[in-house]
């Protein structure tokens, strides 16, 4: 790990100003991703601003939404009765993430900002355009079992590792931030970006912009949501493929639907065309299979990860059937 200076503050404007003023400064929350990457010198900030003393640790239920503070821990969020009731997919996704120890340290803000687990990104001896723009992508012709089948580019085919972010797509969550230019609210679907030819850019946040909370609007749809994850072992493992799904049915027809996909794209993937195809039809295996087929239209495997295409289709059908039941 490279040496760095450390400071902390209980003021969000001071935290934002300090990081904004220094290109080499970063916020430090739970540290479970940042410190890990700093050990491998994938990240090498010169200054860490510890934000754990900021007043964003609470989860509060309002009349029309639940607000999860950016510093709420994954464990406390997963166990929170309002989250379990209002957005079951989010609680399920968090419980299926990492380990109890990591969930006690890791925060909701840090979870959204965590970086890919691509082995080439983490190994500074190999080529990675995300780590070193212009150096190439070792995954495209390398061992790409974990990699993307949708949304990748010639420069990067990594996958986004967050389970929670996929579930947030199914419940229309909104990310609230405070930055050098004031506050804003960003729908979760617009928060992460695709690699294109700038894989080093992963979200719409500016340098120094701080996530302060994630809001989940209270809706019938969100309260029906579920999260299903397939992985190489039963626990303590990232997703190979995952689905966050929500459905509302009225008079025998699907009135609204949400479908978020994980493990298959460089960002938490919203299958919008599939959602649209579901609306207005009766819930049935055939309708779910059609939605699954639409979701993988344009998908491409790179060899080792070809299996993800049929796997995600089956998982979509399974999760839609479970929320329709």
């Amino acid at each position: 790990m490279r040496p760095f200076a450390y400071t902390r503050t209980a003021s969000s404007s001071a935290a934002v100003a300090t990081v904004t003023a220094d290109r080499d400064a970063k916020f430090l929350a739970g540290g479970t991703n940042l410190i890990d990457l700093m050990k491998d010198t994938v990240e090498a900030p010169a200054l860490l601003v510890d934000i754990n003393a900021l007043p964003f640790g609470d989860i509060v239920e309002h009349r029309t939404f639940v607000r999860i503070g950016a510093l709420a821990r994954m464990s406390d969020t997963a166990d929170h009765p309002a989250v379990v009731r209002i957005a079951p997919a989010v609680a399920e996704a968090l419980l299926a993430s990492a380990s109890p120890q990591l969930r006690n340290a890791a925060t909701i803000g840090g979870n959204l900002m965590q970086r890919t687990r691509c082995a080439y990104f983490r190994d500074v001896a190999t080529a990675c355009n995300k780590r070193e723009p212009g150096r190439g992508c070792a995954a495209i012709d390398g061992i790409n079992r974990q990699h993307a089948v949708l949304g990748g580019s010639r420069d990067c085919i990594c996958v986004h590792p967050s389970d929670m972010a996929v579930a947030l797509l199914a419940v229309d969550a909104i990310v609230r931030t405070r930055g050098p230019r004031g506050e804003r609210s960003i729908p979760i679907a617009a928060f992460h970006t695709l690699p294109g030819d700038t894989p080093q850019i992963e979200t719409v946040l500016e340098h120094g912009e701080l996530i302060v909370a994630v809001d989940i609007p209270i809706s019938r749809l969100a309260s029906t949501s579920t999260y299903v994850k397939v992985r190489d072992r039963a626990s303590y493992e990232f997703a190979l493929v995952s689905v966050g799904a929500a459905l509302s049915v009225r008079d025998g027809k699907i009135a609204d639907a949400r479908l978020g996909l994980g493990g298959i794209a460089p960002k938490p993937w919203r299958a919008l065309a599939s959602e649209r195809a579901l609306i207005g039809v009766a819930p049935s295996a055939a309708a779910f299979e059609r939605a699954a087929e639409i979701a993988v239209g344009g998908a491409r495997g790179y060899g080792h990860n070809d299996f993800k295409i049929p796997l995600v289709k089956r998982l979509i059908v399974k999760s839609l059937a479970s929320v329709a039941a």
Partner: peptide
């Protein structure tokens, strides 16, 4: 030393965390 085994588990204010992925100064 990277959060994948739990051998370094300690309690901080009674809660378990992996001590390898947190700074002492925190």
């Amino acid at each position: 030393d990277q959060g994948t085994c739990g051998a370094c588990t300690v309690l901080v204010n009674g809660r378990r965390i992996d001590s390898c992925l947190t700074l002492a100064i925190m």
